[in-house]
Every structure is written in structure tokens, then in C-alpha cells.
Amino acid sequence: MLKSIGDARLQSPFILFVGHSTEPLGTRTYVCDPLHPLPDGADRNGASLFLSILKSYIKSAERVTHVLCWERKTVKHLQDLEEQDRLKLRIHDCLADFHGWINPDNKETGLISLIKKSVSADTKEINVIVDSLSNPLFTLGFAHCLQEIQQMINSPIDNGPRIQQLMCLVHSDVLPCGPSSLSHLKHLASTVVELKNQVARITHRKPGGHEEKYSLSAGHICIQPFRIPAHTELAHAEDRVKATPLPQDVASFRVALSDKEKEEKDKLVLPYMRTSEKPEEGGGKVFYQPDAVDDWDDEDPDDDLDV
């Protein structure tokens, strides 16, 4: 499913990527495009995966793709692609002077007006990508953005082209009004890709209302059907891992023992342990003798385990 999005083959008017921010998990990385490998441990909020899909999407798409860049790293990554093929990609740097603070003539009223300015009259259909939507949701206003998204999905731009596909990334931790605003966005989207702990969960809503769900694990992307029990198990497992990190992951020294060290540890005779029945002559020794009143349990505590 994710590959079909990257190849611009998925028929879905509004694809929403939701990046859930997590702590870095070491060296696990997505490898979805061998031509553009991602740096180790870089994808903490799904932005790198989105960027990788975005590059593949732009190359595969048949129409012109307009990318509204609200993040500086997106502009940096896509500049080379734009230079290669200016006919297929148009980058709009929304960080430059969107509100006209530097030059009042540059002031834009919204996302659509920005696209309209750069579309030629003979263009019939375009694709639009917003990276990321979290930024304009604050700076332009949530209601305004929602209206514009609805307009982009449902009707052509005034006297202009129709937006065939809209793809947006949104950071779940940077949203006005919290989770409720995310629910609104998900409701509008026909395909939702949730990126968390380097696992992508995709919900695709078909025109008839039928929903398909997939889960993609880290490493090489392999498509596997999404099962509800697996989902809950996975979520619980992730939560458990997040709540209690393993000591060997957080310690700056080696926690576990090697086989040799374990063997030496077993051989070690501690000073209070009786080694022979006959006490050695000369010098004092301390022996531990269980008291009569001690609650000494001779039973094997693991007796009930089937091992």
C-alpha cells in the first residue's frame, strides 16, 4: 500500500500522514527507496519516511506536483529534484514571506491562493503536497485550513485546475485543540497513514465506505494484512517498551554477563558458605546456620512452572 502511494498509483483524493513523535529507537531505519537511504535513527516523527515517499511520488506522478514547504528541511531536500525537472515539481517556500512581513506585496491569503499564482492557464490537473500541515493549522487558523482542504478535495480551484490528489503530513503533537482536530482531519482523509515507532498503519477508505487496514514494520517495507489483535498486541508491546526501557538500553556500561563470567560467578565460594563439615583449625570463621524459627522453605519455587 505504501509503495503504491510512493509510486503515485493509489486512487485516493486525500492522503493524510500522521507522524507520532517518539524517542529515538537506536539504529532501526525505514528503507523504502534504495536510491534515497535515510540516515540512521533519524526518523523520530515520521518526517523522513514522508520525505522519502514524497521524492518517489514526485518522480512517478504523471501530473505536476506542487509542494507547499512549511519545513526548511523539505525545501533543502527537494531543491535538487526541482532543478532536475522543473516541469514536474513546483516548490513553494512558505517560510520565506508568506504573511508579507518583509514585503507586503508577497502576502498570501491561504494555501489555494499560493498555488493559483503559479499554475498556468492550460493546466487541467495537479497534485498538491503539504509538509507539514501542523504549521499552517496554527499560523493560518484551523478552521481556515480545514475549509481550504475541503475545497481542494471537492472542487477545482476557481477557473483553474483540479487537484487530483492531496497529500499532507501532520505532526500529532503539534495540533491546535489537541486530538479532536486530528479526528477532524482523519475524517476528511480517504487514506490515513499513521507513523509511530517506525511502524506505519494504513487505513484506506474505499469510495463505497469499505475500509482496508495494513501494517508496515520497520526495515524493508513488507506489506502484511493488518489484523486487529495484532494491532492491539503491538500497541501494548510498544507502550510497555516505552514505559520500561531495558537496563541494557539505557546503561552506559555492559549489564549482561558473558558465559565465562557466569561460569566464574557460579564457581565463586562466598566467605559465609560452608565448604566442609570439619571446621578448619586456626582463625575465626563465620557460618550461616538457619535458625529453628526461620521460615525455611525447601520447596522449589519454580516447581509449578512447566520447564
Binding site: L95, A96, D97, W101, I102, N135, T139
Partner: peptide
């Protein structure tokens, strides 16, 4: 407001390109 601060940060980020 938070939205104004975000716009302010956007513009500061834009300076990195300028």
C-alpha cells in the same frame, strides 16, 4: 499568541535561506 510565535519562528527559519 502561540500562532504569532509560530509565525515568528517560521520567519526566523526563512532567514536561514536568505
Amino acid at each position: 499568541s502561540t500562532s504569532h510565535i509560530f509565525t515568528f519562528i517560521n520567519y526566523l527559519q526563512g532567514l536561514l535561506a536568505e
